[in-house]
Computed example of a mutant assay.
Amino acid sequence: MTPADTADHCLGLPGAAEEYPFGERTAVFKVAGKIFAVLADDAPPARVSLKLPPDEVEALKAEYPGTVLPGYHLNKRHWVTVRYDGVLPDEEILALVEQSYDTVVATLPKKARPARRD
């Protein structure tokens, strides 16, 4: 899996938008103005930061040390940074992206939530 695959997946989620507030090498994905993923390929290996429930954050860091790290420049309780080092299976990365998206959508007021996914 490449960062481009992850970006395509992010943009396939309802209401997702891509911005580059930190420069051309760091894509920020938002839903209703709230960040659910930060994809950086400015240093090898590329990495994606995702917002997850705190218990999931701790479990992932314990299961994949060195690959799943505390969120880079983000709240360490709610965010993890996943390195594209080949350790975490592709399906797991995509599932984490969707979990991050769902975590953020759940915090939005009902009027701001995008149409439900099938």
Rank of each mutant, 00 (worst) to 15 (best):
A27K: 01
I35Y: 05
T67F: 06
G12W: 12
K51M: 10
V105E: 01
P14N: 12
F22R: 05
D5T: 12
E18K: 13
A17K: 14
H9D: 07
I93R: 11
L60T: 06
E24K: 04
A7G: 10
E18Y: 11
E91I: 05
K110Q: 08
R83Q: 10
T6H: 09
K111Q: 09
A46E: 03
P89V: 10
E91Q: 14
A7L: 13
R83D: 00
V105S: 03
A7I: 08
A106T: 04
V48C: 02
P65V: 08
G33K: 01
P21G: 13
G66A: 11
D102H: 11
V68S: 10
T67Y: 04
G23W: 04
S100I: 10
P45W: 02
G12E: 12
G15N: 07
V105L: 06
A106H: 03
G23N: 04
L88C: 08
R116E: 15
Y20H: 15
E98M: 02
L88H: 03
P44V: 00
Y101L: 04
P65L: 05
P3S: 13
H9N: 12
G66M: 06
E24W: 02
A32V: 09
F22N: 08
K34A: 04
A59M: 11
V38E: 03
P45F: 04
